[in-house]
């Protein structure tokens, strides 16, 4: 295993690896395109390179290198994109990756993972290392509530039901899983039984769990800290609309850039709230009956 960092060794926490294994650490400098290409070359010689940077830079800035040198070559490279979502906070819109799922999940050969907490992130990282082929892992910057345990199963291509329910299903990934559980709790108090699915494997997608949710609950809301365009919601809609169409709502960022602010303030301003998710669930349940 080799780790490459683009001048963000401290922020991405690859510093520890660089200290412990300096001979297998590559400081690429602020040069993400070269970093991705070098990783492809390392992979072709049998290494398992992890390239690490903010997601706005990698896969943001080196998408063509990821597409051709890594994905088309099916090079065994892992792309770790940190500081995703509005929770990047004060750095503002330039540094808040809200498009990374869209730009990676459209690439053939690529696996896309968005774990929901630190425990699952560790599992996703190990699973990525064991998987043969390109993987993108999406990391959040802010402290995120821990909702899984060591015993929670994690497998590439699998989603899991975190809360049972029959009136509708919320399918969420990353930082939104906790919010989805809160929304389900709030809805329970209002008499609605809502299933919550944690969907860390955006590609390959667990079509079975999603189609089962459509069949058994008849309505789906997706929830992600990412643009509505091309994200988890799109992936779920592709599965639902072709296998078992049911009313759907997609909660995410509405085709707009973020701004500086505290994470919670930004979630409020840009509509990533329990109320918004709960409202979307009520809306799909209503449409289901009409």
């Amino acid at each position: 295993m080799v780790v490459l960092s683009a001048d963000l060794t401290e922020s991405t926490r690859t510093l520890e690896f660089s200290k412990r294994y300096p001979e297998r650490f590559v400081e690429a400098g602020v040069a993400e395109q070269n970093m991705a290409g070098m990783a492809a070359g390392l992979a072709m010689e049998g290494k398992i390179p992890f390239v690490s940077s903010f997601a706005v830079f990698s896969p943001g800035r080196n998408w063509d290198q990821i597409r051709v040198s890594i994905c088309y070559s099916n090079a065994n490279v892992k792309i770790a994109g940190s500081h995703t979502g509005l929770t990047t906070g004060g750095d503002g819109a330039t540094h808040q990756a809200l498009e990374d799922i869209a730009m990676t999940r459209c690439l053939p050969n690529m696996v896309v993972l968005a774990p929901c907490d630190s425990v699952e992130t560790k599992k996703a990282t190990l699973a990525a290392a064991r998987h043969s082929g390109p993987v993108y892992i999406r990391f959040a910057r802010d402290k995120t509530p821990v909702v899984t345990t060591e015993a929670t199963p994690f497998e590439i291509g699998k989603a899991s039901v975190f809360r049972e329910g029959s009136h509708a299903t919320i399918i969420a990934c990353g930082t939104m899983v906790y919010l989805a559980l809160e929304a389900a709790e709030a809805l329970a108090e209002a008499g609605f039984s809502v299933r919550v699915v944690n969907n860390p494997s955006i590609k390959p997608l667990d079509v079975d769990v999603i189609v089962a949710a459509a069949k058994e609950t008849g309505a789906i809301v997706t929830c992600e800290e990412h643009q509505v365009c091309g994200g988890l919601g799109g992936a779920v809609a592709e599965a639902v609309s072709t296998r078992f169409p049911v009313p759907m709502e997609i909660v995410g960022i509405g085709d707009i850039f973020g701004e500086s602010g505290e994470p919670q303030e930004l979630w409020r301003k840009y509509g990533l709230t329990v109320e918004r998710v709960a409202g979307a669930v009520r809306a799909v349940i209503e449409r289901k009956g009409s």
Binding site: G37, A40, M44, K47, V68
Partner: peptide, 24 residues
């Protein structure tokens, strides 16, 4: 050995191979 077309991508891949040779 490599996939190429979009210009400028080859040298980086060559460097990755050089780094691997050095490590091993």
């Amino acid at each position: 050995e490599n996939t190429g077309g979009p210009l400028g991508q080859g040298l980086s891949q060559a460097i990755g191979r050089c780094l691997a040779a050095r490590m091993d």
